[in-house]
Amino acid sequence: MAQVALRRLLSALILVAVASVACFSIVAVFPGNVARVIAEMRSSTVSDEIVKQIEVQYGLKDPVPLRYLRWAGRAVRGDLGESLRTGQPVAKDLVRRAPLTVILILGGGAFTLVMGMGLAFLGALWSDSVIDRIIHVLSLIGASAPKFFIAALLVYLFGVVFRILPTYGFAGPASWILPCISIGIIPGSILSRVARVALAEEMSRQYVVTAISKGLPRRRILVHDALPNALPVTINAFAMHFAFMVQAALVIEPIFAWQGIAAYFVEAVRFRDYQVLQSCLLVFCVFFILVNLSVDLISMALDPKQSRQRLA
């Protein structure tokens, strides 16, 4: 187990290195003259001389591999450069904005788990009943609706019609509810179908038939026997959608006026702030890799057979 974990950690470090190259390269090959963009941000009048000074200042004429090594070396030390738009250190801005995005993703992940596992358990408990069919339909609708539509609908219902929840800004726990629900409904709906299928497969196995023949209640069999065996598949499905919540945050944060990392990235795209773009892309990639690494290790711990196969 320890050897497998070490190999996975080494693979994750290699992936982080590859991701850093990709993040730098994507921004480095942006069309247009980056130095001229920087000059236009700083002054209304731009001359060729000013553009050349900026190229020298930022080393934009140096070979791309050398520029990457400089950027990566500073990034390892926690120096991500300065925002071209505000002049503030990018690392400082990321640290300041990180709690909002962390709350959004963790809250959305918690809602996804509660919704997905709750609907799957209810559907399996009353299998092939009207309740099961209603849950199936609701899950399909939830998985098909666009993120921005769900967020806009929640804002309209709870902020305009009922006026019971705040819909603008980051102002305490009450303002977390709608963004977390908005980001969690789609993955929660998908997770409910994955978990429902996994539970149905477990409930059709021979050990369940034996337990039912002994007179054990269906609820006890679901909780003590079927659910633990369905967890590895469910956790892997949850991890995939949890990692992609960063992508969903790009839509949800601007709608609710949250100034998190995702909103920071959207602003950087609008103003072509390439220092911020590179840093945000790197943060997103590292988050994605760490989530997959953590879930892979958890899956091995929950599934001894999978662990033995990997060791072999």
Rank of each mutant, 00 (worst) to 15 (best):
R70G: 10
L153K: 08
M240Y: 12
L153T: 15
F170E: 13
V51F: 02
M117C: 12
W176Q: 08
V246T: 14
V21H: 05
P89R: 06
R77K: 15
L178W: 01
A91S: 15
K214L: 09
V130H: 09
A19C: 08
L84M: 14
I212A: 14
D303W: 00
F162A: 14
Q206H: 14
V4Q: 12
W258L: 12
V137E: 04
R163D: 12
A75R: 05
R7L: 09
D296F: 07
M300C: 13
V161G: 08
M245S: 04
K305D: 10
T167V: 15
V137S: 09
Q88S: 11
L293P: 08
L227Q: 03
L191H: 04
N292K: 04
S129R: 08
L165E: 02
A268N: 02
A91G: 10
I235K: 04
I150D: 06
E82F: 14
F121S: 12
V160H: 09
S25Q: 05
S129T: 06
R70W: 09
C280Y: 09
R67A: 07
D296K: 08
F244G: 13
A143W: 03
S279H: 01
I141N: 03
T234Y: 02
L154A: 03
R310M: 14
G118V: 05
I190E: 11
A226Y: 00
S83V: 07
M41V: 04
R96A: 15
D225A: 12
P146I: 02
R74F: 09
A262G: 09
G59H: 03
L84I: 07
K214Y: 06
E82R: 13
A263H: 12
I50S: 11
L297V: 01
M245Q: 14
S144D: 04
D79R: 04
F242A: 01
Q3T: 13
C180F: 03
S299V: 15
F271A: 13
R196Q: 10
G108I: 06
R85H: 11
A72M: 14
G172Y: 01
R220N: 10
V130R: 12
M115I: 10
W258T: 10
N33Y: 02
P173I: 05
R36P: 00
W126S: 13
G116R: 05
A268V: 03
A91P: 04
D132R: 09
Q206C: 09
K305R: 15
E253R: 05
L199H: 03
R270M: 12
G215N: 01
Q57G: 08
A211D: 01
V291T: 09
V90L: 01
A98L: 15
A17R: 07
V102G: 08
F158I: 07
S175H: 04
V276F: 06
K305T: 10
W258V: 08
